[in-house]
């Protein structure tokens, strides 16, 4: 991936996280699980989740699904 694109994504991550923390006014006292007390948790998990969603299928595709152009001819 191009370096400038990674930098843009990282900048968006930091800005949205900061905005989320400012909007929530810090952390919430009430919660059912530990992540309810983590400011910006769904932004952090969102970015991580999207990275996994992009990289995991690429890896699965490359390792298990992709076949070279001559794959079926070779089997004959």
């Amino acid at each position: 991936m191009k370096k400038w694109l990674i930098a843009v994504i990282a900048a968006i991550f930091i800005v949205t996280l900061a905005l989320s923390i400012i909007a929530s006014g810090g952390h919430h006292e009430a919660g059912v699980a530990w992540w309810h007390h983590v400011p910006g948790f769904y932004i952090i998990i969102g970015f991580l989740g999207c990275i996994v969603l992009v990289l995991l299928p690429k890896w699965v595709g490359k390792e298990f699904l992709y076949r070279d152009d001559q794959y079926y001819e070779k089997g004959d």
Partner: peptide, 20 residues
């Protein structure tokens, strides 16, 4: 609401309060 589920109408805090 996906990145800040409590934004605006405090749905998340209200739901947490109900569950608690």
């Amino acid at each position: 609401l996906g990145i800040s589920p409590n934004f605006g109408l405090n749905f998340y805090d209200l739901a947490i309060q109900a569950v608690n």
